[in-house]
Design a protein around this nucleic acid. Structure first.
Lengths: 147, 147
DNA sequence: GAAATATATTTGCCATGGCAACTATTGCTA
DNA sequence: TAGCAATAGTTGCCATGGCAAATATATTTC
């Protein structure tokens, strides 16, 4: 039973959970010989859903900031998984695309991710997920900047 | 209502939540002119509870690995908040202590952290916390290495 | 008691990410 | 239209942290 104190140390639990999730992703990719981090996969996933979006859009969709996305896209391009093309109408922006290799890598890793997600939610229910989402969103909202 | 699919993308929510928590801690410390990160505070807190423990014990208690603790303790020592003393009986180990300044800093920041924890749990109940702990611990357990 | 093992800590390399400053381009406005 | 503000992206600096290798000391084993 949780301690009945008004100041709850939820951060520590969130921290250790996200850490073990990242480690499991990394290990699972390694096991199928894919050189990809969790965060790199997140961007591949965004691109799979909306190929050709800008880095800014990638950032918004993945809760990352612009510099981080810039650097991860650099890495993905170096690995040959994505490529950048300038917008014609706005030369400040890039469209980021999955290459053939990027699409293949996504196809190869997606089932692994699905398996990881199932593994992570083992012994938990759909109702638990609703509860989980409500709590996570509430904490997030509580800390959001008041406009 | 959450999507009824067996592979639930819980990671993204955990990720964005831990990020906004860290940002709030950092900002709150800055506002009271304390130069301290969230993770540095976590170690101060451990030391406040058990002054003189080793870096290994610090690591275990904070879900950090040994290299990370080593580097954070370096920083804390540079800031004059902690000091290392060798064990007499085991010269591989250090005992890490809070200095006077470290204790003062802890006293100054603790109320701020309590306030942040309350802020983060706004509109959530004790029962929510039990639920939250159960779900977080279950996810963690699901990903833990089978011995 | 010497050699092999185990443990505590450090260091190096790299990825993520926060923040600020910078460049290039576009849009707005007086 | 000249000048300024806004936007997209990059770069630098630093902290965290994962992993592997190195160092120093302790413990075990033969």
């Amino acid at each position: 039973m949780a301690k009945r104190q008004s100041a709850k140390n939820f951060g520590a639990y969130i921290d250790r959970t996200i850490k073990i999730i990242r480690q499991n992703y990394l290990k699972a990719f390694k096991e199928i010989n894919v050189d990809l981090t969790t965060e790199q996969w997140v961007l591949l996933d965004s691109l799979h859903q909306s190929d050709g979006i800008s880095q800014n859009e990638l950032a918004n969709g993945s809760f990352k900031n612009a510099p981080t996305v810039s650097r991860i896209v650099d890495l993905l391009c170096k690995k040959g998984l994505t490529e950048r093309k300038r917008f014609e109408s706005d030369k400040r922006r890039y469209k980021v695309f999955l290459t053939k290799k990027g699409k293949d890598t996504y196809k190869k890793t997606k089932p692994v991710v699905v398996k990881l997600r199932k593994k992570g939610w083992k012994n938990l229910t759909d109702e638990d997920y609703d509860f989980f989402l409500r709590i996570m969103n509430q904490i997030f909202e509580n800390f959001e900047e008041k406009k």
